[in-house]
């Protein structure tokens, strides 16, 4: 009995007014696999993430999660079955504190988010989890700080913490290292290497250090099509990839 892939995309196509953005994209992530998704700006990576997480509907094709067809499911339902995502352009609860941000993620994850009373006994453990989640990404000292007053690097870490706090089976990260310093990027790699465990990862990232450090396999997207797929060694040796992507990076 072979295990169902955690994520399976079948012949995804998507156009905007400006023309086709994704064409015939097929992608399969085995359970526990860590997949890097790279490609030049405008290749359609964020669009693909939106189609996976429910932010956009594909024009054609289907999305399967653990064997279940989820193509028409709303974002919140996909989250509840185990898909968590971060955002290329930070999207946090800016005027709330770090504590409140994590609380939003954890109350929901524990199914306590619509409790119409103060169940102290049930809510107290949440506060411990909030503190732990913050500690994990090095935000333990700024629990009380308003998020939009924090340095950018800390906001990035909070973004990841919100995703990890909900223990999703599939973690989808859209350029988590964008705008980070070298030291912050190394911290991010460490954090993901230690905290991901056996979760399945789909990582969109421009920083190749991050991609190579974290990916078992890499998919290259170019003009909305899958250009290549393989192990990090295969991808770095692939001449097409070097030309359209890595070459551009080195230029």
């Amino acid at each position: 009995m072979s295990e169902l892939p955690t994520l399976h995309l079948s012949r995804i196509a998507k156009s905007f007014g400006s023309g086709p953005v994704l064409q015939d994209v097929n992608l399969s992530l085995q359970s526990g696999e860590r997949r890097g998704l790279i490609g030049p700006n405008g290749a359609g990576k964020t669009t693909l993430i939106n189609i996976i997480t429910g932010g956009l509907a594909p024009d054609s094709g289907d999305v399967f999660f653990q064997g279940q067809r989820i193509t028409g499911l709303s974002p919140y339902r996909r989250n509840r079955i185990g898909i968590g995502r971060s955002f290329q352009i930070l999207s946090l609860f800016g005027e709330m504190t770090v504590r409140e941000n994590l609380r939003n993620a954890l109350l929901r994850h524990r199914g306590l988010h619509v409790l119409p009373w103060r169940a102290a006994a049930r809510l107290a453990p949440i506060e411990d989890e909030v503190a732990q989640a913050a500690e994990l990404v090095g935000l333990g000292d700024v629990l009380k700080a308003r998020v939009d007053t924090l340095p950018y690097g800390m906001q990035r870490r909070l973004d990841i913490a919100l995703v990890l706090a909900q223990e999703p089976a599939l973690v989808v990260l859209d350029e988590p290292a964008a705008g980070l310093s070298g030291a912050e990027t190394r911290d991010l790699i460490d954090l993901l290497q230690t905290r991901l465990g056996d979760r399945t990862l789909l990582l969109v990232e421009h920083d190749m250090d991050v991609v190579y450090s974290l990916s078992d396999r890499i998919t290259v997207l170019d003009y909305g099509r899958v250009l290549a797929e393989g192990s990090p060694a295969e991808i770095s040796a692939n001449s097409d990839v070097r030309r359209v992507y890595l070459g551009e990076d080195a230029a």
Partner: peptide, 17 residues
């Protein structure tokens, strides 16, 4: 808390479930 979270950032709230 949920009502305020949805007002604060509806998109993020949706992707948090």
């Amino acid at each position: 808390n949920a009502v305020v979270a949805v007002r604060s950032n509806e998109k993020r709230a949706a992707f948090l479930g």
